[in-house]
Structures are given as C-alpha cells and as structure tokens.
Design a binder for these strands. Structure first.
Length: 430
RNA sequence: GGAGAGAUGGCCGAGUGGUCGAAGGCGCUCCCCUGCUAAGGGAGUAUAGGGUCAAAAGCUCUAUCGAGGGUUCGAAUCCCUCUCUCUCCGCCA
C-alpha cells in the first residue's frame, strides 16, 4: 500500500509514475473520496468531541447530586446525527481503503520502463551453456527414462500439474534443499525458520496477494485459511504488527516450504513438465531492513541467490524487470534466469524484489529508529532458489548421452557421494 | 472434542458505568545531588489518524485496555460473537 499522504500531496506525480507500469490511477475518484472523507471525518470528530464533553458534564453533575435531565435533553439529538455521520465515514473510508489497496507499488527511478517481459533489461550473463555432442532431451524425458519422474500417476492421485518423483531424483531434490539452506545459513547469515503453510487472510493482505489475487490461491474456505503461494507470506508476516528494536536489524530469514499456486489463467503455458506446477518446493530469502539500506540489501540478496547457481555451475543471466513486468508490491525486481538447453533459452528460477515500505505499511511492520520513533521497515525477498526448477536445470544441463545424469560436485556430499544417477544404478540399489 | 480460568501500556499489576490513555511498581531517557560504587531527589516515557500550518514545531480534536458488534448521554468495566493463552479430561504424531 502506498502512503496516503503521498497521494494527498501530489497525486499527479504518483499517477504519472504508476502509468509507467500500465496502471491508471483514477485521480478523480480518489480526490472525490478524499474530499468526502475529510468532510465526514471533521464532522464526526466534532460530534464525538461534543458528546464527550457533555457526558463528562453529566458525570460531574451526578457526582454532586444535581439534576441532569436538562443536560440529557440537550444531547438527545446527538445520537442519531453521530451514528449517521460515523456510518458515512466508515463507508467512505472503506471505499478509500479498497481503492488504495488496489494500487501497485511505485517503481524506483532506475527501473527500465516497458510494457512486458520483452522490455526487461539483461544485466549480466554468468557461465557458458555447455556444448552437447548428442541431441539433448528435456527434463521430462530425462526423468522418465530413468524411471524416476511420473506425471501420469500424479495426475491420477491428484490432477494435472502435479508430479511424483522417486528414488535418486526425490533424494536429489532433498539434497538441493539442504544444500541451499546450508549455504544461506552458514555463509550468508540467514536464520532458518520453519513456518505455517496455511495462513489467514490478514497475512495475505500484508504481503499484497489479497485482495487482488484471490484467484491464484488455494483456499480452504471452511477453515478460513489459504495454502501459501510462497514462503514470503508467512515469513514476512513474522513482523506484522510489531515494532522491532533497531539493534535487531537487519532481520534475515531463510525458509524452505512447499508453494501452492492455482495457476489460474496460465492454462496453455508450460503444460509439459515441472516448470509450472500447482505444488513445488522453494527456498526463500526474506529480509527486513532500515529504509536507507534496502537497495544495497537487494543487491546482496541477489548475490546470495546467484551464489547457489554458481556453486551448482549452472549458466544463468540476471535481468532487471521493466515497469510493466514487475509484481504488484515491488518497487524493483531482478529475475535470475537459468539456462535450459532443451528449451534453448533462459527461464526464471529466482525473483528478488525490494518492496520498500509497501508491504510494511500494510502489515504495520516497524522498527524504532534512532530518533526513537517507530518507522516502517523495508521488506525484501527472493527465491534462493526455486528447488523444482533447479532440479529441472540439473536434469537438463547435466544429462549424458547414455541417459544418466551427473550429480553436480557440490551436491555429492548430500547424496552419499553418488556421482551419477543412472537407470542401472537405480535398478541395483537396495 | 468436553469442562473451567484468563487477555489492561516495554514488563509486572490496579481498576466492575462517569472527571480513565488508564493508579502503583519495574524498566528506560534527561536533569540534580553524591569526589568511585551504591543510594537519593525531580521531570519525562504508547500508537494511529484528523484539523490548524507553505512545512516543521506547537496547539487542538478523535480513536485504541485481545478483535468485532451491541446497550448507554457516557464502557477497560455490562451484553453477544470470535480469536488467543493457561489448567484438567479425552484423543493423537
């Protein structure tokens, strides 16, 4: 949520900046609601003040044993008037909140302006895609030939966009998760947290998934809970409604969770394979920092995510998302895209964003500044990394002509020293 | 799931219809005193929003005693619903 003060003082400038991301702010409506709000609030508060004063007088009079019927008659009219005024204010405030919570974050000045993915700006490429001397196959074929990846059964158990993995592949996913968590906790200074996978609506409002993106969520209506679409939701909401001491900053959390997404509106996209699933594993990095530090924190966080890819020796590139492609709550986002040889392209494997105070304002997540005043935190997060897609990248980039998959050296310790996953090894294992 | 008890400021804790944003204590900040330390004295110490103002300061108003609703001229206090915590029983990983 944007600072309403900002809109009051310079709505034109805000609207202009929002238009760069394809959002048209209804200025007339905002100004009209603000006008109404102001009138109603002033009137309501004046009536409340009057009521309070009279009530106080009644109390004093009664204490002295005086007759209060005259004063009571005086306030008789107040009740209905106040009630009507309060109701009006509440209605307008509600409309204002609705308008406000539907406005996306304002992009930072250095975010490239553009309409879509096509206008994102590549920032750097790291690693060289491997040259294959045999026809590469995609991860689905790699996994199915090994007998370790099964979409048909998953569909029977559940429905489309789910997967069953077994044997060395299931273990490889677990190894990846462990590896990522270990790197972030021991080398990058994050505190590992374990969090709920079912969250309430307030948490989703806090990080900006609600009210706009209900369609993308799995919703357990009976229990008024939602399956998390990302660990960002429970982890960021750890500080909702809190005022954290300055000394505790920056807060750096890493969490491994499954993520659940309905993928409404993406029916034709990525229907094959594990790229787009209703359920996938992710290791998420979240930071809460002082406002002046959030941009350097974003660069650092991006580096932490990249560290996983370099350790796995997977080629990738970093792109700065343009205004039109950024997420609703973000002020600046970098995507990391990993090389997928079978698609002959780079695909998103991490998204690192600075939300500035946008989420913190919704959550009322604050810290006590050196001036002693509570101020809104800046929140950031990024995948470090999407485990499922990392698995895809390994299967494709590390595939061999004989159908086996080499295990990246940094993961071997997590797999009991196994160097290669092959059909034969699977057939002979205990 | 059943029975009971509770939720007040950074913390402890008083407050069962009136001058209560809330006694008292602890903690914290500033000042004074004390040649160190200890002790003592004084002042201050929630959050959000509105109005005034170019802005800030200041002044002023409103809201908030777990959350939401209700009764009342007036609610921390009475009523209803919900959430959470604790104790006992049951069940369970």
């Amino acid at each position: 949520m944007l600072d309403v003060q900002l809109l009051r003082t310079d709505v034109q400038a805000v609207a202009k900046r929002l238009s760069t991301r394809g959002f048209e702010l209804d200025i007339a409506r905002f100004e009209q609601l603000e006008q109404e709000r102001k009138t109603l609030q002033v009137r309501t508060q004046a009536l409340q003040a009057e009521r309070n004063q009279v009530s106080k007088r009644i109390g004093q009079a009664k204490a002295k044993g005086e007759d209060v019927s005259a004063v009571l008659a005086e306030v008789a009219h107040l009740g209905d008037e106040l009630k009507a005024s309060e109701a009006g204010l509440e209605r307008v405030q509600g409309q204002l909140d609705e308008l406000l919570s539907g406005i996306p974050n304002v992009p930072q000045d250095d975010v490239p302006i553009g309409a879509s993915e096509a206008d994102n700006v590549e920032r750097r490429r790291v690693g060289t895609p491997r040259a294959f001397d045999f026809p590469v196959v995609d991860h689905v074929e790699v996994g199915e030939r090994l007998g370790l990846l099964d979409f048909a059964r998953a569909a029977r158990i559940s429905r489309a966009r789910f997967v069953v993995m077994q044997g060395a592949l299931a273990r490889l996913q677990r190894a990846l998760t462990q590896f990522m968590l270990d790197v972030h906790t021991t080398r990058h200074g994050y505190t590992e947290v374990y969090v709920p996978y079912l969250v309430n609506a307030d948490s989703l409002r806090g990080t900006g998934q609600l009210p706009k993106f209900l369609e993308d969520l799995f919703w357990l209506e009976r229990d008024e809970l939602f399956l998390i679409p990302t660990a960002e939701v429970p982890v960021t909401n750890m500080v909702r409604g809190e005022i954290v001491p300055l000394e505790s900053l920056p807060l750096k959390f890493v969490a491994h969770t499954p993520c659940f997404r309905r993928e409404a509106g993406s029916y034709g996209k990525d229907t094959r394979g594990m790229i787009r699933q209703h359920q996938f594993e992710k290791v998420e990095l979240v930071q809460m920092v002082e406002p002046s530090r959030s941009n350097e924190a974003l660069e650092a966080l991006l580096g932490h995510a990249e560290g996983i890819l370099t350790a796995l020796d997977l080629p990738y590139r970093v792109v700065t998302l343009c205004t039109g492609d950024m997420g609703f709550s973000s002020a600046k986002t970098y995507d990391i895209e990993v090389w997928l040889p079978a698609q002959n392209t780079y695909r998103e494997i991490s998204s690192c964003s600075n939300f500035e105070a946008f989420q913190a304002r919704r959550m009322q997540a604050r810290y006590r500044s050196d001036k002693g005043r509570p101020e809104l935190l800046h929140t950031l997060n990024g995948s470090g990394l999407a485990v499922g897609r990392t698995l895809v990248a390994i299967l494709e980039n590390y595939q061999n002509a004989d159908g086996s998959v080499t295990v990246p050296s940094s993961l071997r310790g997590y797999l009991g020293g196994v160097e290669k996953i092959s059909a034969e090894a699977e057939a002979t294992r205990d």
